[in-house]
């Protein structure tokens, strides 16, 4: 089992990707897609540098839903900032202390920060312990850091167990 399917999630992803690309779920496409989904990881799994394990699948769905809602929320906020001419914006560069470790959890956290309310992750600190964030409109930066920690980082910590 582990010899034939070194990473089952990648295989499942490849099968889904193939079916979406062909835009059909006929038997022939499923068989061809399964061949590709088994074959491609066999050739490439030795080259994968970053590996991680996911825990708590229910929490992952919850996290995705939370991020989706926050994306819509942040878009409405940004639209209000852009369209209201009188509002003075107060941008800020904030150093965010990181608690989680590892390449993949950090990448997920940085992408989440970029997609959600008023913040863009700009640079990872040299020691890997802090993330530089540019925020569009900040009144209280302590509260913003606490928000990110509570909403995203604690959940990611549980998902990746790091």
């Amino acid at each position: 089992m582990t010899k034939l399917l070194p990473s089952p999630l990648l295989s499942l992803f490849l099968l889904g990707f193939w079916l979406l690309l062909q835009n059909s779920v006929s038997v022939g496409q499923i068989i061809l897609g399964s061949f590709l989904a088994v074959g491609i990881p066999l050739f490439t799994h030795r080259g994968l540098d970053y590996r991680t394990t996911l825990h708590r699948p229910k929490l992952i769905m919850e996290y995705l839903l939370l991020v989706l809602i926050d994306i819509i929320q942040s878009n409405i906020d940004i639209a209000a900032i852009i369209l209201l001419p009188s509002r003075r914006i107060r941008p800020a560069l904030i150093e965010y202390p990181l608690e989680i470790k590892g390449e993949i959890p950090l990448a997920v956290l940085a992408s989440t920060i970029t997609l959600t309310p008023g913040t863009v992750s700009a640079e990872l600190g040299r020691d890997g312990n802090s993330l530089l964030i540019h925020a569009l409109n900040v009144d209280d930066h302590e509260q913003m850091i606490n928000d990110i920690k509570r909403r995203y980082e604690s959940r990611l910590k549980e998902i990746f167990k790091c």
Binding site: I78, P91, T114, A122, L136
Partner: peptide
Amino acid sequence: DFLTRLHAPTKS
């Protein structure tokens, strides 16, 4: 400025 400009396209 550039860093604030970056916010608009990446999200909206």
